[in-house]
């Protein structure tokens, strides 16, 4: 399992770098929108939180930790895929980063767009279930479409890509948001750009780092 340790080390480095970049982007772009949306939330006084990190370094620190750790997890998926396929280098990494962006951001967001705090949505567990199903179906679908040679697997892959969106994401009967619509749309655009930059960077770094690694 020496190879496993090397994958973990490379992914840790890639994830921390990618997570740091994402945190900086979020701090200047989406965090102000989240904070603005929370003003509407607290003024409506229906959202009482338990412990939460204090605004400022504590809150930003947890976000940095979250981004670094998710970056590590995503980088593991990218590195393992490249390891299995004997690929290395930033160009392959960019391809896998694009796939990750599609699987973990674009496809789920088509049905469940990123939301500001205070947005009324369908029940959490049904949304989480649809999100997971969509990510899994998209990952398997992309594999079938692009990485197999049999026609029936490619057709099946394309079908899997479409399936979650034919079923449709769970939505509340009456949609309601506390923050103005313009704020929400701005948030969706910035989040989509930030996550694209994050995924492509994460993929490129992961691919580049794998060049430095000699597997058993």
């Amino acid at each position: 399992m020496a190879d496993f340790r090397k994958l973990v080390t490379a992914s840790l480095l890639a994830g921390l770098l990618g997570g740091l970049l994402l945190s900086v982007l979020q701090h200047y772009q989406t965090l102000p929108l989240i904070l603005a949306a929370e003003q509407f939330e607290t003024s409506s006084a229906e959202h009482v939180h338990d412990w939460q990190p204090m605004d400022g370094w504590q809150r930003n620190g947890f976000t940095l930790l979250f981004n670094g750790l998710t970056g590590f997890g995503f980088a593991l998926l990218i590195s393992a895929s490249m390891y299995w396929r004997d690929q290395r280098g930033y160009l392959y990494g960019l391809g896998w980063g694009l796939a990750g962006y599609w699987v973990f951001y674009v496809a789920p967001s088509l049905g469940l767009p990123p939301e500001l705090p205070g947005t009324d949505s369908a029940e959490l567990h049904s949304r989480q279930a649809w999100w997971l199903f969509t990510a899994a179906a998209t990952a398997i679908g992309l594999f079938g479409l692009f990485l197999t040679k049999q026609r029936w697997l490619q057709i099946g892959g394309a079908g899997l890509l479409a399936l979650p969106h034919l079923i449709g994401a769970p939505h509340p009967e009456v949609a309601q948001a506390l923050a103005p619509e313009a704020l929400q749309q701005h948030f969706v655009v910035l989040t989509s750009i930030n996550n694209a930059i994050f995924w492509l960077t994460l993929g490129a770094i992961s691919g580049r780092l794998l060049r430095k690694v000699t597997f058993e």
């Binding site: 994402l22 979020q26 989406t30 965090l31 989240i34 809150r59 947890f62 976000t63 979250f66 981004n67 998710t70 973990f104 951001y105 789920p108 967001s109 469940l112 767009p113 990123p114 939301e115 500001l116 705090p117 949505s121 959490l124 949304r127 989480q128 999100w131 989040t191 930030n194 996550n195």
Partner: peptide
Amino acid sequence: DGRHSAAFP
């Protein structure tokens, strides 16, 4: 904030 910004439900 991380969950909101990564589009997790």
